[in-house]
């Protein structure tokens, strides 16, 4: 006799239940694996970001990260590299300045410049990683870029709209040469 809390399932039902179990497990793993996003938000708040702005950017980033991690494959693989790359533009503007509540007009130039620099660094990291893949590099690159820019924007909002725009420009300036350089070398192992 089977356990009182279960019943022996016919094969089609067993298959459906196995599928539900798998998808549920993937979702739980995705929720756990998205832990860097709340951490990035806390970091941005600590470095002077506005609570409203940070929340407004973090919530969709968290939702998108969980979704991409749940989907998996090239999409999921781009999340962590994107979060890691996005840390540079997130922290640089607030690292050297006391920008609680936003940068003062005098410090805006520094904020915006550091967003450009942060964007360049993020672009180099994402471009290099994407170009080294033998398969799925475009999907990976697009996901990592989107995540990196969204993460960086949480910190670059200290520099206002120009800060975010500077980050995007810097990202392109970093990514393109990195892709060209990495593609000219022999690719390493396939997916990260």
């Amino acid at each position: 006799m089977a356990r009182p809390d279960t019943a022996v399932l016919p094969l089609p039902l067993l298959r459906r239940r196995a599928r539900r179990t798998y998808e549920g497990a993937r979702l739980r793993c995705a929720l756990v694996d998205a832990w860097p996003v709340p951490l990035a938000a806390l970091l941005a708040l600590r470095l002077g970001g506005s609570g409203t702005h940070v929340l407004a950017l973090t919530a969709p980033l968290l939702g998108a990260s969980v979704l991409l991690l749940w989907v998996g494959r090239d999409y999921g693989r781009g999340v962590w590299p994107g979060l890691a790359a996005g840390m540079a533009p997130l922290v640089l503007p607030g690292l050297m300045l006391d920008c609680s509540g936003g940068c003062s007009p005098g410090a805006q130039l520094w904020c915006q410049s550091s967003c450009v620099v942060g964007g360049v660094l993020a672009g180099v990291v994402v471009g290099w990683r994407a170009a080294r893949l033998t398969t799925g590099s475009v999907r990976f690159g697009l996901v990592a870029a989107a995540v990196a820019l969204s993460t960086g924007a949480i910190g670059c909002l200290l520099g206002g709209v120009l800060g975010v725009a500077g980050m995007v420009v810097g990202f392109g300036l970093g990514a393109v040469p990195a892709i060209v350089f990495a593609s000219s070398r022999t690719p390493a192992a396939p997916a990260p």
Binding site: R3, T6, A18, R19, T21, Y22, A25
Partner: peptide, 20 residues
């Protein structure tokens, strides 16, 4: 019946741990 139940539970556990 117990064997079938054990096999089904094992299969479900495999799929539960498959993402890792």
């Amino acid at each position: 019946a117990e064997a079938e139940d054990a096999a089904q539970h094992a299969l479900l556990k495999v799929f539960e741990h498959a993402p890792r």
